[in-house]
Every structure is written in C-alpha cells, then in structure tokens.
C-alpha cells in the first residue's frame, strides 16, 4: 500500500443481487481534489460511503488515512469531513446549534467549538443567520451549513457528495470559491458530481464511473485530449436537409457525431474544419464552434441514452 490518503483495490459493493460498485481501483493523494463523475446510479455515493467508513465493503481492499475502515472506522471518521448528497440537518435547531452538537459528537470542547463556529460562519457567509432556525433557510444556505458542519472538526480529508446539485449559479460559484480556498489550505477533497464544469473547475484528477466501474481516469485536460478533440463544431441544418448533408460531412473531421437535431464535428482546428465544410458547398443554417469540454468526454464514454 502507498502513502495515499485513500487507496482502493478491487473495491466492490453489492446490495443483494445488485452490484453498485464493481471492483474499482483508485488512489487519492494528499492535497489534491479528486472527482468521481458519472450518471445516476453509477455507484458514486456507494463509493463515498465506503470511504466515509459508514458502509462496509463487500470485497476488495480499502485504506482511508492509512487505516482499514472495517477495523478503525471510528478513528477514521474522527478525521473526516462528510457532506452527504442529501442535507440531513436538524431542522428544529438553529444554525449555531447544528454546528455545536456536531462538534460535540467529535468530542470537542465547547470553547474550541465556539471558536471554530465563528470561523466557519464567516467562511460560509452565514454569520447573519447564526441564530436562525434551519428549517426556513434557502437550499443554498442549508448546503453551506452542511459544508460548515462537515468542517467543524478541521478534517484533513473532505468528502463532498454532489455539493452543488440543486443550487442556483450564484450559490454554486460561492461554493466553488470556498472549496478552492480549502484546497489552497491543504485540505484534500473528494467530490462527486454530474456537472462537467464543476469537475473542470475543481478537480485535479478524476475518474468517470459508469455502472459501478471506472471507465477512465486522468486530469480534465488529459481526458479531453484522450477522448475528444480540442474543439467542437456544432452545425444545425434547415429542417429536412440534415440527412442530405450529414453523409457528406463524414471524413471532414476526425470524428463526426450525428444527433437528431444537429451534427457535431470533433476537430483540432475548428476554423480549418469550417473552411473545409464550406469548400464542399455544404451550408448549415447555423454553426457554433467551441472548446471541447468534459461533457463531450462524459457523453462519449457513458452514452447519450438514459439507461436506468
């Protein structure tokens, strides 16, 4: 085993007949932000719960902070911060009380907790809501409180399961900024997300999971280079003319993908490809050229159809 903060070998989780995590290997190193990307049901949360030492693995090997969760779950949990997919705050209590009782579960003294709460409320911009009951708070505020709660014990390793799902753009950007700061302070982050932009923003390295397996691994840029092209040309055609033109586009770019409403050309140089298209006398109704994103990689690897 290495000195990685999390080290998984052939990690497996079954729920009865259902295989949620199907033998995955990964390593999370100190100080990095590591992402699990994948569609619904890919096994992201199941993996997070095994790392969080609240869900026993079915098979394989797992070390978190150098220890085996099966034997040292309590010690591991003492050093982790966990932000679960669904907020599970005490809605009747105030913001302050939620943080206080959580700190107490970690065995912290009231004095230390109170100092920490002051810092965390400032950090998550919840100062003014200190004595508000949690129930009426907005989704973004609840999420921030859940994050503050996960940080109460000053963890070295923070597990964030879909930290920004359901939040508006302002709230997401605020959270990204806070997570980025945590990373700067040396906290290791493990993040699951459906959002490609989030993964691109936050993750140094990520794995894409599908149906319990890891389909690829690397930095966001590596993955785009490996599985897509630098740029994408999206063309729309007048109704009824797409079939006619689409066939003639084949060969004009390294990869051409035909969708019901548009054609995507994956290329290293969008301008050159656009010129080549024009030279063939093909006239799209509209053309958009953009950088290739993780979304292109994601859709390529996990498919465009919804399989549930």
């Amino acid at each position: 085993m290495t000195d990685a903060l999390v080290d998984a070998r052939n990690l497996r989780k079954e729920f009865g007949e259902l295989v949620a995590v199907d033998g995955i290997d990964f390593e999370v190193r100190a100080g990095e932000a590591f992402g699990f990307l994948g569609p619904n049901g890919a096994g992201k949360s199941s993996t997070m719960k095994m790392i969080g030492s609240v869900s026993p693995r079915t098979d394989g090997d797992l070390r978190v902070l150098g220890k085996d969760p099966n034997e040292h779950g309590q010690e591991i949990r003492a050093q982790l911060g966990v932000i679960p997919q669904e907020d599970n705050l005490d809605l009747e209590l105030t913001v302050y009380e939620n943080l206080l009782i959580y700190g107490r579960y970690f065995g912290m003294s009231r004095k230390v907790i109170n100092e920490r709460i002051d810092e965390l409320l400032t950090f998550t911009q919840l100062d003014e809501r200190r004595h508000s009951r949690v129930e009426p708070l907005s989704g973004g505020m609840k999420r921030r409180l859940t994050i503050a709660r996960g940080l109460i014990n000053t963890p070295k390793l923070l597990l964030l399961d879909e930290p920004t799902t359901g939040l508006d753009p302002q709230a997401r950007h605020l959270l990204w900024d806070r997570l980025y700061r945590l990373k700067q302070e040396g906290v290791t982050l493990i993040i699951t997300t459906h959002y490609m932009d989030e993964a691109e923003q936050l993750c140094d390295r990520l794995v894409i999971m599908d149906k319990g397996r890891i389909v690829t691994e690397g930095s966001p840029r590596d993955l785009i280079e490996q599985h897509s092209r630098r740029e994408v040309l999206e063309m729309r055609f007048a109704v009824g003319t797409q079939e006619e033109y689409a066939g003639r586009l084949e060969g004009l770019a390294p990869r051409v993908e035909i969708l019901p409403d548009r054609v995507l050309l994956y290329t290293d140089d969008a301008d050159a490809t656009a010129d080549a298209v024009a030279a063939q006398g093909i006239v799209p109704e509209s053309t958009v050229s953009r950088r290739s994103t993780l979304e292109d990689v994601f859709l390529r690897l996990t498919g465009r159809t919804l399989v549930e």
Partner: peptide
C-alpha cells in the same frame, strides 16, 4: 424522514 441518524453516524458516534 430527516436522516439525522446518518449525520450522527458519520462522526465517531457508532
């Protein structure tokens, strides 16, 4: 309903 027990079990409390 509230899943507060899940929150508690993520701490050293078993």
């Amino acid at each position: 309903w509230r899943k507060t027990y899940d929150a508690i079990l993520a701490t050293p409390v078993g």
